Simulated scan of single mutants.
Amino acid sequence: MTAMTASRRVSIALASAVAGALALTACGSDSDGDKKSEGGKESAATAPERTLKTVMGDVKVKAEPQRVVTLDTAELDSVITLGVKPVGATRTDSKTGFPSHIPADKVDGVKIVGEMTTPNLEAIAALKPDLILTSKLRHGDKYEELKAIAPTVMTESTGLPWKENFLVHADALGKKTEAQKAVAGYQARTAEVTTALGGKDKAAAIEVNMVRFVEGADIRIYGKENYLGTIFKDVGLGRPAVTAKAVDGFMLNVSPEKIDMADTDVIFHSTIGDPDKAKATQVLGSPLWKNMDAVKKGNVHVVKDELWIQAIGYTGAGNILDELEAALTK
């Protein structure tokens, strides 16, 4: 088989899969999930559509989408928080392919549809979704292909605007009531953690830093304008002066020789990729690291990157708050 023939076959297969998904959207399906219930409740296939205004323009979605595909961790966290099990999701760096903070039963049976940066369009189409959730930042270049498969709702970006994005996801899923409960629960939990730390003044007196070791990149000291930064802020924790140097408030890249810039009252750190290649092994064993005040006082905590950096949602935030309280009240 020639390379050209192979390429044509892949293109034909993808076109067929997309056409099948479009036919399903237009005509409905004979599967059990699309039939009316015994009580006569309107099926997902025949439910009235709603028009959502998104960064990519107006998108028509079903009143309550039943077959949802998520293409990033934030969207996955959102649907799980809202009580929806997706039919497909992209892979994360964890052993199972799904973030470990999400209960196994919540993702049992969910199909992996490629990597976050390179979602498999054929695999997505094969699941016959009625809604795809992602962001323009991640997959804006694939929007035309994705919307040909199913209504695709994108937010502008991810990370910092996670609370606003969550409401977009909830609207797309028809889960506004559930969203209100999740937000209220988070607000109550952050207040509990602040109280556990001795109140607002004492919480503000504790300065915390987040350091991330990344394979193939410089070491990152996280600023205030990101997912984790908003959680620290909601609890009322202090942030050291170095965070003001973060580019766009997001993060500051440093070399191993500058790691002491991260020193403060409490340091949390995570690693993504190989610890040796990410310089974690080198730095954590260095005299410079060991001589930092937070290290000498035992106020350094190793955390999971897939939770503290990548979760980007209310379910993840709840887990972070639990670990944060445990670390700061020991």
Rank of each mutant, 00 (worst) to 15 (best):
N226L: 06
I309G: 07
P256C: 05
L121Y: 10
L328Y: 12
L173A: 02
R212T: 15
K111L: 03
A19L: 11
G185T: 09
R9F: 04
Q282R: 12
V68P: 03
S16N: 12
Y314D: 00
V79E: 04
P86F: 13
L237S: 05
A6V: 10
I206W: 02
A126K: 14
F166W: 12
N253C: 02
V18M: 13
G28H: 06
G285W: 03
K304R: 14
T190N: 00
S31C: 15
T96F: 00
V247E: 12
A6Q: 14
L284R: 10
T118S: 09
V110N: 00
Q66N: 11
A170R: 01
E225Y: 04
M154S: 00
N319G: 15
K53D: 12
E325W: 03
P240S: 05
F213H: 13
V214T: 15
V69W: 10
E325V: 08
A188L: 11
V84G: 03
T230C: 00
G318E: 13
Y222T: 05
A150S: 13
L133S: 08
Q282H: 09
S135C: 04
K111I: 01
T70D: 06
T54V: 09
G83K: 07
L22M: 15
L307A: 01
E122P: 01
A23F: 08
E192G: 02
T54Y: 08
A23V: 06
H139D: 10
S157T: 15
T96D: 10
N319F: 10
G97W: 08
P86S: 11
S270V: 07
V18N: 03
A89V: 07
L167K: 15
E323M: 11
D130K: 11
T118E: 14
G285A: 10
F250A: 04
D58A: 14
T25Q: 14
T134M: 01
D34P: 03
A326L: 11
K258C: 01
T152F: 13
E144I: 00
V193Q: 04
